[in-house]
Every structure is written in structure tokens, then in C-alpha cells.
């Protein structure tokens, strides 16, 4: 009964004011930390440093946006890091061996699309849990990357790709182009999710797939689409990353980057049970993580200590949310992990 009541527009706004949801809590924590750092940390609040923060989170943020699209549709895509690394490295390898720039790009993007489709088809049509599908396809793609299509696991940025270096490796009015790329992706995803029919379908499907099917939405094709979008964003992020560091280390697949991606998405308030959240949530989550890391850098914390403190702060953020919005045993969704 509560849920039907809260869907009425008036009560919804009223509830919003009173209720501190996770996004608001994370945003408040971000503001508090930001203000605290601005006051107590010399060198934090200046343009150079703020740009630094943005640059450091742009790739993570982009991956987060792709992940958010999938998570809103009640899925998860753990293959994003593999899709970020291998197709990008393929493009770079092909370009360095003299293949035409356009063809090299098409090859990389096609590989990414193939895996996006595979993820989508397996989860939507074969009904394999997304967690396992994407775990396996990610592993498979990383395997493909190691079985001969790349000369080495670490591929340097070839000069032949310099015509597209502007997507992440240059600066525009003092702003690194990777930040601009992040902004462009954020706007695109936001428009897609909130202003297009398909975007709204994703929300509906994430909220209740059975209801969405009953109302006649093409549930399975839309699910395929969301993995496709995630794959495309991942390969774009890969190109941005490679152009900004001048190298693509495909061994990044072995690292815990994917956990950080899931983290910024869920931390910002995109619920894993689907249908909730949006671009703003990802940005909030990413900003919080980026700011904490930057502040600790200035505080001269070591890399490991930064991870530790970051983790503890995130844990506190989740715990506060949980205390303020406790789980109701009566209405908790079965199988919602």
C-alpha cells in the first residue's frame, strides 16, 4: 500500500524532502568532505587540483555510466574491464601494424559489440544470471586477448592513432579532453535514459520485468541493448584511457578495477535490484571516491593506506544509509543481494 501511495506525485515530493535516500546521503558526505578538505587542506581548493580530481575519475566515471545503464535494467556487467582493454588494444595493435585507422577502429568496436551482444543474448534469452554470464564472457575476452591477436599484453599508443588522440590525450581550454569525453558520455547517457522511450523502458524493466513484459515492452531486446550500450561505453573509455596514458595494459583485467566501477555506481544510489538511479547518482558516487582519494593524496597517504581509508569511508556511507533507511523484513525483495 505504501508503494502505491508514494507514487502519487504530491506525496512523492513530500517524501523526498523528508527521506534521506542513499544518493542524498552520499552527496551530503561528499559535500562535507569537500568543505572540510577545502578548509583544512592547503592546495585542495584550486582549479588545478579540481581538474586533477576530474581527470583522475573520468575513466572510472565513464565505466560507471555504462554499468549504471545495465544495473538500472536489473543486470550487472563484469566484463566491462575486459571490453575496455582487449578491443582497444586490438585497435592499437592493428593501427601500429599499418592497418587503416578507420578499419582498426571498426575492428575494435566490432569486437566490443560482439561481446555486448553475447552478454545480452545469454542473459536475456538463455536466462543465465548476469553475474555469471559477464564473469565468463569477460574471462573469455581476456583469454582472446592473450591468444595471439595482440603481440604483447601491454600495447603502446601507436603514432598512427594520433588523429584520435584528442578524445583523451590532449587538453581543451586547460581542461583535459578525457574530462570532456566523460561529460559528453554523461550527457548522452542522461538524455538516453530520461528522454527516450528505450531509456524509460530500461527503468520499467529494471523495476519489474514481468510487469514490463505484460504491458507489451520488448523486454528481451531492450536487455540486449543495455549490454550493448555498456560495451560501447567501455570500448570508448578504453580509447580515452589509452590515449591519455599512451599505453593500454590489458593486464588491467586482472585488477580490481571492476569492483571500483560497481562501487561508484551502487554507492551513488543505483540500486542493484534495478529501476532506480541515474547519471547523477554515478557522478555523485564517482566524485566522492575521487575527492577522498585526492584529499588523501594531499595528506600524503600511501597508495595502500588510501585504499584502506577509502574502503572504510565507503563502508560508513553504506552503513549510515542502512541505519537511516533500514531494511524492512516484511517488504524486502527475495534474492535481493
Amino acid at each position: 500500500m505504501n508503494t502505491t501511495a508514494s507514487l502519487l506525485p504530491k506525496e512523492k515530493t513530500a517524501a523526498k524532502i523528508i527521506k534521506l535516500d542513499q544518493q542524498t546521503i552520499v552527496f551530503l558526505i561528499f559535500i562535507i568532505i569537500f568543505i572540510a578538505f577545502s578548509i583544512f587542506l592547503p592546495g585542495f581548493l584550486n582549479t588545478g587540483n579540481l581538474v586533477n580530481i576530474l581527470r583522475s575519475i573520468s575513466v572510472l566515471g565513464m565505466l560507471g555510466l555504462g554499468m549504471a545503464v545495465v544495473v538500472i535494467g536489473r543486470g550487472i556487467d563484469l566484463s566491462m574491464v575486459a571490453i575496455l582493454a582487449v578491443p582497444t588494444a586490438l585497435t592499437m595493435t592493428l593501427a601500429s601494424t599499418g592497418v587503416d585507422l578507420g578499419l582498426a577502429l571498426i575492428a575494435g568496436v566490432a569486437l566490443a559489440i560482439a561481446f555486448g551482444l553475447l552478454n545480452g543474448l545469454l542473459t536475456a534469452y538463455a536466462e543465465v544470471p548476469a553475474l555469471l554470464t559477464t564473469l565468463a564472457t569477460g574471462l573469455g575476452l581476456a583469454g582472446i586477448g592473450q591468444s595471439g591477436i595482440l603481440q604483447f599484453d601491454v600495447v603502446p599508443w601507436p603514432d598512427q592513432l594520433n588523429p584520435i588522440e584528442w578524445i583523451g590525450g590532449t587538453t581543451l581550454f586547460g581542461i583535459p579532453s578525457s574530462v570532456i569525453s566523460f561529460a559528453v558520455v554523461a550527457i548522452a547517457v542522461s538524455v538516453f535514459l530520461k528522454r527516450t522511450k528505450l531509456g524509460l523502458f530500461i527503468y520499467a524493466i529494471g523495476d519489474n520485468p514481468n510487469a514490463a513484459r505484460t504491458t507489451g515492452m520488448p523486454v528481451r531486446p531492450v536487455m540486449v541493448l543495455q549490454y550493448l550500450i555498456a560495451a560501447l561505453i567501455a570500448v570508448f573509455a578504453g580509447l580515452v584511457m589509452a590515449s591519455s596514458s599512451a599505453v593500454m595494459d590489458t593486464r588491467i583485467y586482472n585488477l580490481s578495477l571492476i569492483y571500483n566501477v560497481v562501487l561508484v555506481v551502487v554507492l551513488g544510489g543505483v540500486g542493484l535490484s534495478g529501476g532506480r538511479g541515474g547519471v547523477w547518482n554515478v557522478i555523485v558516487g564517482t566524485l566522492l571516491v575521487g575527492t577522498i582519494l585526492n584529499g588523501m593524496t594531499i595528506l600524503n597517504f600511501s597508495y595502500d593506506a588510501q585504499n584502506l581509508v577509502k574502503g572504510v569511508i565507503l563502508l560508513m556511507a553504506i552503513a549510515i544509509d542502512s541505519v537511516l533507511n533500514p531494511r524492512n523484513e516484511e517488504t524486502a525483495q527475495q534474492g535481493d543481494i
Binding site: S245, D249, L257, N294, T297, I298, N300, Y303
Partner: peptide, 18 residues
């Protein structure tokens, strides 16, 4: 870590800021 270039990059970025 395992001779990880992205970790090297992160560490260097941090140290260069400090």
C-alpha cells in the same frame, strides 16, 4: 603489484601531486 603499469601510473600521479 604484479608489475602493473596502471598501478605504477596511479602511484606516480599521487607522488607527483605530493
Amino acid at each position: 603489484g604484479n608489475y602493473d603499469s596502471s598501478k605504477a601510473k596511479s602511484i606516480t600521479q599521487v607522488v607527483l601531486q605530493q
